[in-house]
Amino acid sequence: MNKMTKLFVLCALTLSVNVLVSINVSATTFTFTAIPDADESQLRTRFEKVALYLEKKLGVEVKYVPVKSYSAAVTAFKNNQVQLAWFGGLSGVQARRLVPGSKAIAQGYEDQFFKSYFIAHYSTGLAMSENFPDITQKTFTFGSKGSTSGRLMPQYYIEQHLKEKPQQAFKRVGFSGDHSRTIAQVQAGAYQVGAVNYTVWESALAAGKIDTNKVKVIWETPVYPDYQWTIRADVDAKFGKHFADKVQTALLNMDSPELLKSFPRSSFVKAENKDFQPVEDVAKQIGLID
C-alpha cells in the first residue's frame, strides 16, 4: 500500500503539472479547427502547415485541433477551445447562434455557389435531367447528419418537390456519414439514390474511383453558400486590436496551392454572416434548428 500511495501522489503531481503547463499554453495560443469535405487522412500533418502559415502572418502561436464531426467542431467553438473554425454552411450557422458576436470572415471561392448532386445506381434507370427526378419510394442515403451539402440542402429540395419528409417519401433513409461513403454505397447498390457534395464527386471521378456505368449524377441542386471561416467575437480582446481583421487578411491572402489543397479550395474570398441567411432559413424550415 505504501508503494501505491507514492504512485498516487506522483500521478496527482504530474497531472497537476500538466494542467498548469497547459493553462499557460492555452492563454496565448490561437487555436483553430477544420474538417475538409473530402479527404480526411493526414489531417494534422496537412493543417499544421496551415497553422504555421497563420503563425507567421499573425505573430501568435497557432495550433490546429483535429475533430471528427461538425458537431464536435461546433462544441469546441462554443467552448472557446477553438477560436477559428472552417465550418460547413449549417455548422457555421449553428456555431454563430451559440456564440453571439462571432462572425463569418471568409469563404472558399467555390462556396459562393456550392451545389449538391443527386446520384443514382444504374438499376433505377434514372438519368440526368433538369427536373427533379422521380425518386419516391426508392432507398436514399444522405451524407453526414450535420452536413450542408450532404443533408440540409438535399433534404430541403426533397421536401420542396415531394411535399413529404424523407422518411415518408422514401422506402429507406440512411446517413452514410461521409460523401465518399455515399458514393461507394450507391455504387454498390446498397442505396438506390444518394446526395453528395459536388466537389467530392468531381474529384473522385477525376481520381478514377467511380464507375459511371454503375452510378451517375441524375440531378443537381440550385446553388447555395457553404463552407466558411468563422471567428469568435472575443479574439480582439484576447489577442489584440483588429486581430479578427488580421486573421481575415491572412486567410484571403493564402495563395499557396499546397495549403489550399487541404480544404480543397482554389482561394478564399470575403464573407459575412448575412451571406448564410439562406442556409439558416432552410435549416429552420426543415426543422434542423429551432
Binding site: L10, C11, T14, N18, S22, I23, S26
Partner: peptide
C-alpha cells in the same frame, strides 16, 4: 501496472484548463 500508470500520467496529452 504501476510503471505504466506513471508513464500514462506523463505522456498524457495536455489537459486544457477546465472552464
Amino acid at each position: 501496472l504501476g510503471v505504466y500508470l506513471v508513464i500514462a500520467c506523463v505522456t498524457l496529452i495536455d489537459i486544457p484548463n477546465v472552464d
